[in-house]
Every structure is written in structure tokens, then in C-alpha cells.
Design a protein around this nucleic acid. Structure first.
Lengths: 130, 130, 130, 130
DNA sequence: TTTT
DNA sequence: TTTT
């Protein structure tokens, strides 16, 4: 058994890519907050989804959306910029329950989409597991 | 919610340390195998336990012991050897069910020395999360 | 290990009682729906919470509220009306995450009265486990 | 989400039946024990498995076997002996990890199979949920 | 980087 | 009804 269940909010819109064989992959970081008051702690947990689940995430989720994820931890090897071999971990989603869906696109409502002015940088850094 | 539940075997004896304030900390890597036949995949997941749970792990577990762990994913910051800041992830155990306890020391019984069946190296490297 | 994790909506306002020793107990049935389209199935799962968690449920939840429950299955003995001994099961909540809080009382807002959308009867019958 | 994860030991050999359409069904009660020392509590949780999983349970498990079950709670309607309609609950297994397999049949070892002399009665009673 |  |  290798099961992770967690709730949180997306730190950014899901990033959608396609493998060379055409499989859809969605990835995002999830802010998982535990505790109350001044004991609150947030862990940013990287989530990956594949195929139909990835497409659904792309269609239904955006920055700030709240989700319930059921998945497993996966350790993945990759080559760092300096050529060294590293391992990274992430949660591969098996199901995602949408607790809050995508916000309406800016222009569809009277609201300004504050997310479209963001300038934050999300370095493509790999977060080590262990 | 931030919950991980997994089963596996310890890759090495638990490493027991004490913080400067005297708290006991146990850490080990868990081989979590999923799938059947030639679709088997093993993820090595780093586990950390604190205080009474850590002491209990130290007293009852050894390399090869099978456990059921209930815990949460934690992302931890640390400074790499080159001075750069990195984040690592691990599972902080909330409970550990011992499915197989510590083996008697080799030589004390007619049993196989469980320590003899693997030569894998577990470098003290930090495994990235994401 | 004995852990249940589920999401759903309350079928009625939580019922709040106090034991003779003054402990608060909340109970409600949770509509847990799985599957999609015409394969949707709903199971009504009885939830019980104690003390602070019960008070919090009473203050924050009402019929239709969506929750994420983490708890354990408990089998409880009781005497049926005909004097026979029966066992019932329920989920004893260890934590409840409020995905939607209590609705304002009907008439206070332009919102639909969430209490109007169902006519199901929840007899105070004991639902057998097994 | 409707997920139960639990560990325990089978109270009896799995009961194997087949539906009229030929599907295999296995059922057994699981002794799920929590707590330590004199605070130990055991809940007997009914488990049902279908098809390949049921066959595997029949082939690998027996009274006393330790398992890790991943499944969901299901409420099922049935007609009681007195003609009244009742609902029962059980855990429908989605996966079963065998932590201890079937005992060798009596006669295969020097051990007496104490289980073959049992006279306990397991009434086909339905345990209510709620 | 999310939110309350 | 299981086990430690």
C-alpha cells in the first residue's frame, strides 16, 4: 500500500503538457495547511495527474481551487542542471475531487482576474524527498 | 488533511539520533512495492518518527522488518553542501504498526541473517520532492 | 489500523445530545456519493462526534453542508425494541473538515433554503452493519 | 470519497459463494484491534470481496490470517426473517494485502490444526450500521 | 505560490 | 469469532 490523501488549494493554475506519445500530464503544487491559529503549517506538495484526470484538472481547476487528492508517492530520478543525478518525489493522483471549481475567466464576470497580473516566479526547481 | 498510509520493509536499521533538547528521532527508508509480477515498482520512501514512537522503532525494528506506517508528508528546508537552499520531503510517522519485529542478532539462532540479503547503498543524499 | 475517510453532505442538521456526565455528542447521516452519471451510488453513512468536535459540528454544520470526515468504524451493541440484542456500526469522527459551513437561516438572505431540497425520511432506525 | 483502510485478523475462514451469474464472492469478519494493554478494543468488521480478489482470498487466507484491507463502506438493503426491511453495512474490499497467508492444512505439518475442532456458532445475523 |  |  502506498496511499496519500490530502486537501489543499492550488498555488497556481495547473500546468498542462503532453508527452511525445500524446499523453496529457497536469502538474501543480498544492498548499496543504494543517493546524489552527498560530500553529498553522503549510506544506507545498507537488501533484501530477495523467490522461483523463489531467485533462479534467486542466478544465476544472485554477489557482486557488480547493481539491481533495487521492494518490501515491512516487520517487522519480532526473538529471540536475549540473549533470548530477537526483531523485525527486511527488504525489501521482489517482482521483481528484473538486471542492471548488475554476473561477470564471476574466471578462466573463465583472471581476478583474487578479491572477493575470501575477509576476511571481516559480522556479522549475526540484524539491528533494528526504 | 495530509495523510499517508503505506506498507513496506526497512532498507536499513533505523537510525536513532537525539536533538540538542534530548528528543529522540528515528529515520529509515521504506521500500514500498506495488504491482505484481513484472509490473512491480519499488519506491524508497524516507520515514521520520519522533519521541516515544522513535524509541519504539529503534527497539522493535531492523533492516528488513515489515511495517505499516500512518503519517503525513512534510517538506523541510535545508542547506546543501554547495550552500544552496533546498527543500526535501519525508513522511513524518504518526503511528507505526509492526508487522514483523526485530530479528534476533545473527548467530543467536539458526535463522538466516536478514542483513545478508541486500547490498544496496543508501547514500545519505537528500531525495528531492517534486 | 481502522481508518475511514469520506466526503459527503449532511442529510439533516446534526443532532446534539449530552451524556449524563455532560459530554456533548453529535450525530448525523452523511450522503456519500461515488461514481459518475448513471453509475452514481449514494451510501448514507452514520457519523458520530464527541466533545469539542461535536460542539463544533453543531455550530458549523447544517443539513446539506459538505464535509470531509476522518474517523474509524465502531460496532456498538444495543437492545432492540423487541428486547433482542443487536449490533450497529457507525463512523466515529476523529476530525471533520468543513467544506461548506452552516447556511444562514431561511429568510435572512436571498439564498435558497437548503432545507427545502429534500423530503427523505431518516427514521431513527438502526442500520445494520454486515 | 469513501475509503476504509484497516488491519486485522480473520475470525473464520473466508466464506466463498457464487452468484447465479457465476461471480465469486468472499466474505469474512475481521477483528480490528486498537489501543494497548487494558485499553484494547476490538471491532468485528464484515468484509466482502468480489471476483478475482474473492478467489485470491479463498486461496490465501484462513481463520487467524492477518490482512490489510483497502475498501469502501457499503450500505445494503435486505429482508429480515420477520419480513421487515433492514439495511446492513459492510466493507467492500478493493484490495487486500496478505500480511500472513493461509496455514498449511492439518496433516501437512506436525501441528494439530486446532481450528478443525471449533464448535463456535457464527449466527448469520446481520450487524446493523448506525 | 493557495486560502481562512 | 481473531490475535498479541
Amino acid at each position: 500500500m502506498n496511499k496519500w490523501i490530502g486537501t489543499g488549494r492550488l498555488g497556481q493554475d495547473p500546468e498542462i503538457r503532453y508527452t511525445s506519445s500524446g499523453k496529457c500530464v497536469a502538474s501543480f503544487n498544492l498548499a496543504v495547511t494543517e493546524g489552527y491559529g498560530d500553529k498553522q503549517v503549510t506544506n507545498w506538495i507537488p501533484i501530477v495527474a495523467w490522461e483523463k484526470l489531467a485533462e479534467s484538472a486542466g478544465n476544472n481547476l485554477s489557482k486557488g481551487s480547493r481539491v481533495l487528492v487521492d494518490g501515491r508517492i512516487q520517487i522519480r530520478s532526473f538529471e540536475a542542471n549540473d549533470g548530477s543525478k537526483r531523485r525527486v518525489a511527488e504525489v501521482v493522483a489517482q482521483s481528484i475531487e473538486f471542492l471548488e471549481r475554476k473561477q470564471a475567466a476574466a471578462g466573463n464576470s465583472g471581476e478583474i482576474d487578479i491572477n493575470s497580473f501575477g509576476k511571481e516566479v516559480f522556479p522549475d526547481e526540484e524539491i528533494p524527498f528526504s
